[in-house]
């Protein structure tokens, strides 16, 4: 089978993106399974190679199919949008916000045209985007806008466990109000569709409980009885292979042992704690619902350590490997 081409965006040039990219691309595991193509800036990569003490030839390509894709060569689509004399590592700069946006825009265009199979992204900085007057507040919103899609669905994966979120960036109190029968049912359906697109058609999904011990039959909270159980029953009646609610202190434990193909968690920290605590660096976000596959590291630009060559590339390597794993199955 042909190795998939994975576009890797360089991220905010002032953050740890460039160094984790050059470190990841010195790992033979990556080249064994895929064709990594960096979307970035040549000078920034050369700089990262130098302070990370890595050696590689940079090969500039115009079309993804022209890349050499062998270890020791970094294939690059060079947007040449950074002036090195103005680049200050670890600081918010409009130039960098704009550059980070340009990398994502180019990667999205290539993915939409089918010239690359998937995108793995490195961190961008929200403040830098704002400084560059980019209207999007984050990565996901940007990809959503550039690909003209609506409401993408984030999934985390770590050690084979897949976790979806009923809600994410809202307060804990608000996330409780978002647990309604209709939403849970919608998410069971959307998550099942997302899994199908990734080629995951076997196994059953579990829905987590909201309250301690899933409310113990209404003793501590009514959402299980009034909303979650009816939603799961309705989904089962419609033919979905789903179980729940299962209390948070069991469901992730069971998922790690392979009992479920995915867990629908009901609020941000429920799913985040369960995944990141297993292995923080290998917890990877996959954005579903886009016309292409996108994986992402779940750490930030780490301005405090950027440019020192000490940032760990484990997460990016995992994101590239995961994009590779799903690329052959991904259905647009």
């Amino acid at each position: 089978m042909e190795k998939p081409i994975i576009a890797i965006t360089l991220g905010d040039p002032a953050g740890v993106g460039p160094e984790i990219v050059v470190k990841s691309l010195s790992d033979s595991k990556v080249y064994e399974v895929c064709k990594p193509l960096v979307i970035g800036d040549k000078n920034v990569i050369n700089d990262a190679l130098s302070f990370c003490n890595k050696k590689a030839e940079i090969y500039i390509v115009n079309k993804p199919e022209d890349g050499k894709y062998c270890q020791g060569i970094i294939d690059l689509i060079d947007l040449a949008n950074i002036s090195m004399s103005k680049l200050h590592k670890g600081t918010v700069q409009a130039m960098c916000g704009q550059a980070a946006y340009d990398y994502i825009e180019t990667a999205t265009e290539l993915a939409m045209a089918g010239e690359v199979d998937s995108i793995a992204t490195t961190p961008i900085n929200k403040e830098s985007l704002r400084a560059a007057k980019i209207e999007y507040i984050g990565h996901t919103e940007m990809l959503e806008g550039l690909s003209h899609t609506n409401d993408p669905l984030t999934m985390f994966e770590v050690r084979g466990m897949r976790v979806f979120f009923l809600s994410r960036h809202v307060s804990l109190r608000q996330s409780c109000d978002l647990v309604t029968k209709q939403r849970v049912l919608d998410y069971i359906i959307r998550c099942t569709e997302a899994l199908k697109k990734l080629g995951v058609t076997e196994g059953k999904m579990a829905v987590a409980g909201l309250n301690p011990h899933s409310g113990e039959h209404g003793l501590f909270g009514y959402e299980e009885v009034q909303h979650i159980e009816p939603a799961v029953k309705e989904a089962q009646a419609q033919g979905y292979n789903v179980v729940g609610p299962i209390s948070a202190d069991s469901v992730f434990h069971q998922a790690l042992q392979g009992q479920y193909n995915a867990v629908l968690s009901l609020y941000h920290d429920q799913g985040h704690i369960a995944t990141k605590t297993v292995d923080f660096e290998k917890t990877i976000a996959i954005t579903n619902g886009l016309p292409f596959l996108r994986t992402s590291v779940d750490h930030g630009t780490a301005f405090d350590i950027a440019g020192k060559g000490i940032a760990s590339e484990v997460s990016l390597t995992e994101a590239i490997l995961l994009a590779t794993k799903y690329s052959p199955h991904f259905k647009r």
Binding site: S171, L172, D177, L210, P212, F220, G221, E223
Partner: peptide, 9 residues
């Protein structure tokens, strides 16, 4: 401890 999540706040 054993409170509905919506009552925690």
């Amino acid at each position: 401890t054993h409170l509905p999540l919506s009552a925690v706040s």
